[in-house]
Design a protein around this nucleic acid. Structure first.
Lengths: 189, 189
DNA sequence: ACATTAAACTAACACTTGTTAGTTTGGAGA
DNA sequence: TCTCCAAACTAACAAGTGTTAGTTTAATGT
């Protein structure tokens, strides 16, 4: 673990507050107080409130994109790909619970980067859906509605940020394993 | 369908805006503009912004509580109870997609009613979990982790508000049926 | 024709918002 | 000891916030 820069400290503190109250309800004075400084001092490190939100969300979104790119190109079964997607979510979320809250709840407050974010999200969902469809075609999975399968998996995975912090004794592998049972065995053939 | 009062119109319009941008980011002037009037005029019908949020969230939360009370007391299998919970969510969400967004995302901005809301939510989750545990004991379901099962089901069901509006040709029964396949067959014995 | 009333209006309030400008502080390296 | 610089500070801004007070409008029932 390398030491955080002051800017990173601010962004991480902001992510925590955004998780609790949401981007719009957190003021720069709230953030400053949480850092133990005055609001104006924040601007020695960041250029705007918006920049903080962007830093939080885009970093995670791109992490998901990179993970998905590796998974789709892997030479493994579609069921295995789904299991890797579960692991991807568990890992990213475990490392950044607070940021995941912003990604889920405050993406619409992105300004300049909104379009880019939506493009990443769209591509991600399309790749996800395609894996499920291929799995059904290859007879690896039951003939359920692929969109509902994806919806169910994705909403569960996206909500992990709410749940992981409650489990202090979290073992990422155990959780991924448990989720696989619940999410995937149901559709497995 | 009885005609809406002016107050109900305001609350429904607010719910729509809250869904798009969240409670904190919607101003009374935004709401007034959406109604085609001036902000001050809203106060002929409502007493505060907070009252609107409360009206939206508490009404739905109590609806869930009433539904759950009926389900837990029914003389049916635990699997059947889970299927009824799925139907409960589909029905409430289909009738109030906008309100469900506030329930999910803006409950923390409740002031006087926050404690009451949390109590309702807690009771609901405890009842839900108990059904799953009983189902496992009665050997109706696989021996998976009950908390993960509940978490997975509940987050999917809570996120329905995001998904139902996209399916214009929605048939509530079909959707409930599909969800049952994906959510319940996986844990069924 | 008149009184009533729901529902709009204008004007203003006290306070909070994100942000800028310019200044001070205190520790590290020369 | 002096210089430098990151990082804090005070003071202030223009705009936006929820809300209030008091007034006008237009339709309804008598």
């Amino acid at each position: 673990m390398k030491a955080e820069t002051r800017k990173e400290e601010i962004i991480n503190t902001a992510a925590k507050l955004f998780k609790e109250r949401g981007y719009s309800a957190v003021t720069m004075r709230d953030l400053a107080t949480a850092m133990g400084i005055k609001a104006a001092s924040l601007y020695n490190h960041i250029t705007s409130k918006q920049e903080i939100l962007k830093a939080i969300i885009i970093a995670i979104a791109e992490e998901f994109t990179r993970g998905m790119d590796i998974i789709i190109n892997a030479k493994i079964s579609n069921i295995s790909k789904l299991k890797q997607i579960v692991a991807l979510h568990v890992n990213i979320t475990a490392n950044n619970t607070n940021g995941m809250a912003s990604l889920n709840n405050d993406w619409m407050h992105l300004e300049d980067q909104l379009e880019y974010y939506l493009q990443l999200r769209n591509d991600y969902e399309n790749n996800f859906l395609e894996i499920i469809k291929q799995g059904i075609i290859a007879n690896e999975m039951k003939q359920s509605n692929p969109e509902i399968i994806m919806f169910s998996m994705l909403t569960t995975l996206r909500s992990l940020y709410l749940w992981i912090p409650k489990k202090e004794d979290l073992n990422a592998n155990d959780l991924a394993q448990n989720l696989n049972e619940v999410l995937i065995e149901g559709i497995n053939n």
